[in-house]
Write a protein that binds this DNA or RNA. Structure first.
Lengths: 359, 359
DNA sequence: ATCATTCATTGGATCGATTCAAACATACAC
DNA sequence: GTGTATGTTTGAATCGATCCAATGAATGAT
């Protein structure tokens, strides 16, 4: 059946309704953008024409090109999109980023992709005024892509410090890790184990201090440095402290604890490089009938809200996540170029997952 | 640091590097879009020019206008942006929406605003191919704005059913509420109280069945209808069941319970129209030394993950949130026009917050 | 009657790319 | 030497708006 009317597509544009209303496109544009400067009679005529032709208002696509500013910032990660809503750390960070955006009226575009080919395209074609890059695994690739767009951008919690020219907001990992270790040594602990974040894209398993020093991700490396600096200070032989690299998920954390507690000498204190790791560890310990902090103490890192309500509540190093989000948005929107790297301080929050050494 | 390049603005465009490389802009475009069809020698020349001039690749702003498709869907709500990351229901929904988007390669733009003036502008200027509208308070305004864009859109959990022509995905609120009420009556409860969601933009406080029937938000109204249909069926005088309208936050829920438990006859069973309400109620009850389900049973609505780990775990009506998200994305992307309203079934999940009536 | 002032409207230029029919080479066959 | 096939490159047209200098019309002042 051949449709009588144009059943295909009929993209009504501003010029169409201008013609229909018998005015120039300039005037038609003004009706929508600055109604007050066009005579009422004309204004009504144009609006009527728009209504009649089913015109949905000026298409932002057109406006955008002229205006140049999208008024939205992109938040990018190499994880799947749902990471933003499921990962505890990401969620808190996003909440603070979105508050900062709300305050300035900017929108948020989520950018991500499973495979890195897709990611490249998504970053290259994202309609944003700047990027906030979540640097977890694969961070450096992401930073590179973002920089290639030549848009303002800042890296959050940068893991790969290969380039000093990258604007980044991070925390003082070394100081934070030291704080965690000192807290435990002050409680009398002498036998430690470290559950590490990934230090390279290499799966999980036991590792060594030497390996860690060559880490691709400086955050992981620095946290270990902080731990060991403090342990060494009180004469603990760090070469005997087991380090297990996890993938920040349940499987690898549990495997790590299986490994650690299979050894002849088992730890009384666990240093976990993230709260997520620590929370999974708590589950494993409960499962294996070990009490926390009776048998084993554990200190996390990040300060996610889940840590406050876990059983037991988690002693951890809290990052000023809200502050980081605020700063990141500010850096993008102001983009005065004066911004470089910024290292924020962290705090130790003592809850019930750490206690005196049983020994 | 003083920038070495021209300190003002230096918008390098495709045409610039085309000229620099001595080719037409058509060819230059091909170098980026379809490299395989341009001779290698030329390709390298253009790429070199781009590199030299600090060109960050074709600007999506320009491409967009020509291509027409943004490849992103907008998710809109009248709440502040952080709603997406903080509200439990929204988070689960967003996680499923983002999974569906990931699968198709579409991006997500978050659209929202505190004041409704800002909201209108944000919706009108959002660069998206369609909208998923979160209908909580102020839903109908939002739906209207979204529809005015003449883009594909679907309303989620639509509260105002004033317009049958709106594509919407919701759950069977009446059936779900009946299920909740029946569960409690079967446990022997006879004295009920209802903690309601907002039924209009009118603050919080005690209310009546008659008020509710005039509700602006049909979801609230239907849940009450479901509750009362079931209670009436077993000969409970619903006119004596207190109804307290909350704002789905701690303050109003606590005020509601203060009110309800100040009455001569106190309930043994509470019907909460959302899990959030129920979880706040759990806190209030614990604070007031009432045991759940010993003294009071409570049933929520939504099925957010927090309900599974609360103390005690929450008996609730779970919505097929993941399914709703998937359907919404599908509806936007396929946009075959065949889509109208869809009502999904809900399930009763019994956990520990409901038990036999103490009487 | 002339000039200055204000207000509304016009139409061309622009934003930064993509697309496509036509022009141009070059090679090969007859 | 003409004709055909193949592969590159060109340049004008297009996408949908906004901006702005110029124009026109109406009012008021001299």
């Amino acid at each position: 059946m051949a449709p009588l009317t144009s059943a295909k597509t009929r993209p009504v544009r501003l010029a169409d309704i201008a013609k229909a209303a018998g005015v120039s496109h300039g005037t038609a544009s003004n009706v929508f953008a600055r109604p007050e400067i066009v005579r009422e009679e004309v204004r009504d005529r144009v609006k009527a024409a728009a209504e009649a032709m089913g015109y949905g208002g000026p298409d932002p696509k057109g406006r955008l090109l002229r205006a140049g500013k999208v008024n939205a910032i992109g938040v990018a990660t190499a994880e799947p999109l749902s990471y933003f809503f499921e990962d505890p750390f990401a969620r808190v960070m996003m909440a603070s980023i979105s508050q900062a955006c709300d305050a300035t009226g900017a929108g948020i575009s989520l950018v991500s992709a499973a495979n890195s080919e897709q990611l490249a395209w998504n970053i290259q074609s994202a309609l944003v005024d700047g990027f906030i890059v979540f640097c977890v695994e694969g961070g450096s690739k992401l930073v590179e892509l973002a920089r290639d767009r030549k848009l303002p951008f800042v890296a959050l919690d940068l893991d790969s410090d290969d380039d000093e020219a990258v604007a980044a907001i991070g925390v003082d990992n070394i100081a934070g890790a030291s704080l965690a270790a000192r807290h435990l040594t002050e409680l009398g602990h002498r036998r430690f184990a470290v559950l590490a974040l990934p230090y390279a894209d290499s799966g999980f398993g036991p590792t060594t201090q030497e390996q860690m020093e060559k880490a691709l991700y400086s955050g992981t490396r620095d946290r270990l440095r902080g731990y060991f600096a403090e342990l060494s200070r009180v004469d603990i032989d760090v070469s005997r402290v087991p380090i297990y690299e996890t993938e920040n998920n349940e499987e690898s954390v549990w495997a790590g604890l299986d490994h650690i507690f299979a050894a002849a000498e088992t730890p009384t204190a666990i240093l976990a490089m993230s709260d997520r790791i620590a929370l999974h560890a708590l589950d494993w310990l409960r499962q294996h009938d070990m009490t926390v902090p009776g048998d084993v103490s554990i200190v996390g890192f990040d300060g996610v809200p889940e840590g406050a309500v876990s059983k037991p509540p988690l002693t951890t190093i809290v990052q000023p996540i809200a502050e980081m989000g605020r700063l990141a948005v500010k850096a993008i929107l102001e983009n005065d170029g004066s911004f470089s790297r910024q290292l924020l301080p962290v705090d130790l929050v003592v809850r019930a997952s750490s206690g005196p050494s049983p020994a």
